[in-house]
Amino acid sequence: MSAAAPPHYPFYTAPLTEPVDGNAARTFEKHLRASDRLPKKSSQTVMFVVVGVVFAFMLFPMFGGALIALGGSTDPFAAFVETITLLAPILFIGIAATVVIVIFVRRGPAGAVRMYRLDRFARANAMTYEPHLANPGLPGMIFTQGSARASSDLVRGDQPRFVEFANYRYTTGSGKNRTTHQWGYVAVKLDVPLPHIVLDALGNNALFGSNLPTSFAKDQRLSLEGDFDRYFSLYCPSGYERDALYLFTPDIMARFIDNAAALDVEIVDDWLFLYAKRDFSTLDAATWAWLFSVVGALLDKLAQWARWRDDRLRMDAAAAAALTATAAHDAASMNTGAAHDDVPFAPPLDTLRPPPGVAAPGKRLTRRGPWIVFAIAGGFVLLWFVQMIAGGFFLLQ
Rank of each mutant, 00 (worst) to 15 (best):
F208R: 03
R120F: 08
R117T: 14
Y185P: 06
S147E: 09
V100G: 10
F92P: 13
N177V: 14
G175T: 06
F92M: 14
V163K: 11
A97Y: 14
D153L: 07
K218P: 13
I142T: 03
A126R: 09
L133S: 09
K189C: 08
R230L: 14
Y170K: 01
R106C: 11
P193A: 01
A122F: 04
D119N: 12
A124M: 04
V113C: 01
S215E: 10
R106Q: 13
D219C: 09
L190F: 07
S174E: 08
G94P: 08
S210Q: 10
P136V: 02
L91I: 14
P195E: 04
Y170R: 03
L118D: 05
Q159R: 15
D219I: 09
E225R: 12
T144V: 07
L118C: 04
R221H: 09
V100M: 11
V100T: 11
M115W: 08
S152A: 13
Y129G: 01
H181E: 14
A96D: 12
G184S: 11
L202T: 11
S210D: 10
P160K: 12
V163R: 12
L212M: 08
Y168W: 01
V186K: 07
I93W: 15
L199A: 01
F143T: 00
D227Y: 02
H132I: 02
V186G: 05
L154I: 06
P195C: 01
V113I: 07
A166E: 09
G146S: 01
V100L: 13
S152V: 07
G137V: 03
S147Q: 07
T98Y: 15
N204S: 01
T180E: 05
Y116V: 05
T180N: 03
Y170G: 01
V188P: 05
S174I: 03
P139I: 00
N135L: 07
H132C: 02
R169H: 11
